[in-house]
């Protein structure tokens, strides 16, 4: 049986599991998305941010 069908049967069919999937999906998606964006931002601006220069003053 395909993965999609399995997923459909076990998760999406019942409202309780479906809601849980939405909530936890949101949590993990948002976390990864934020971390990834932050990493891109810090990569682009390497050396200019406070976290890059603060070791000099502590």
């Amino acid at each position: 049986m395909s993965l999609w069908a399995t997923l459909n049967r076990t998760v999406f069919k019942r409202t309780s599991t479906f809601a849980l999937a939405v909530a936890s999906g949101t949590f993990f998606f948002e976390r990864t998305f934020d971390v990834a964006s932050q990493a891109i931002f810090e990569h682009i601006n390497k050396g200019k941010l406070w976290k890059d220069i603060k070791h000099k003053y502590e």
């Binding site: 891109i40 931002f41 682009i44 601006n45 200019k48 941010l49 406070w50 890059d52 220069i53």
Partner: peptide, 12 residues
């Protein structure tokens, strides 16, 4: 150095 869509200010 902060000119541009993704460019932060230069904190130094």
């Amino acid at each position: 150095s902060h000119d541009g869509w993704f460019k932060s200010l230069d904190h130094a």
